[in-house]
Amino acid sequence: MFLFLLIAMVVVVGAVTLIVIGGGDSAALPEAAPEQLVDPLPPDRPVGRAEVEALRFPVGVRGYRMTDVDEALGRLGAELAERDARIAALEAELAGVRPGPAERPEPAEPAPPAEEAGK
Rank of each mutant, 00 (worst) to 15 (best):
L73Q: 15
A78D: 13
P107Q: 06
L37E: 00
V12E: 11
I87Q: 11
P58S: 03
V11R: 06
I19Y: 08
E116T: 06
R86K: 15
A85Q: 10
E53V: 02
P42F: 02
V38T: 13
D68Q: 08
P105V: 08
M1A: 10
L80H: 07
E115C: 01
E106V: 15
A32C: 08
G100D: 09
R86S: 14
G24Q: 05
A15N: 10
V97H: 07
E71D: 14
M66R: 12
A54I: 07
G22Y: 06
M66V: 13
G24K: 06
L73H: 10
P110L: 04
E109P: 14
R45V: 02
G22S: 06
E91P: 00
E53F: 01
L5R: 08
A111K: 03
G77T: 14
K119I: 13
L80Y: 09
R56G: 05
F57D: 00
L37H: 00
A54S: 09
V59H: 14
V11N: 05
P43M: 02
V38C: 00
V47K: 01
R83G: 11
E116S: 09
A111N: 00
E106A: 11
D84C: 11
P101G: 04
L18K: 04
A28G: 04
A50V: 11
R65W: 06
A114I: 08
A15Y: 13
G77A: 09
E51P: 01
P58G: 02
A114R: 09
A102Q: 14
L6V: 12
I19S: 08
D68C: 07
E109Y: 06
M1N: 09
P42I: 02
G48D: 14
A78M: 06
L90Y: 03
E91Q: 12
A78I: 03
V38K: 05
R104F: 09
E115R: 03
G63L: 05
E82P: 00
T17V: 09
A117E: 13
E103A: 15
F2R: 12
G74A: 15
M9A: 15
V52Y: 03
A15H: 08
E103M: 08
P42K: 04
A108T: 03
D39F: 00
P113C: 05
A89V: 06
R86L: 15
R56K: 15
P34T: 07
L76Q: 01
E116F: 12
V38G: 01
P107H: 02
A108R: 05
V97S: 07
D68Y: 13
P30E: 10
E35R: 07
G22T: 10
R45H: 08
D25T: 10
E93Y: 05
E106F: 07
A54N: 14
A111D: 04
A95H: 09
G23I: 03
F57N: 01
P46G: 04
P34Q: 11
L73S: 06
P113E: 15
A33R: 15
R98K: 13
F57R: 02
V11Y: 12
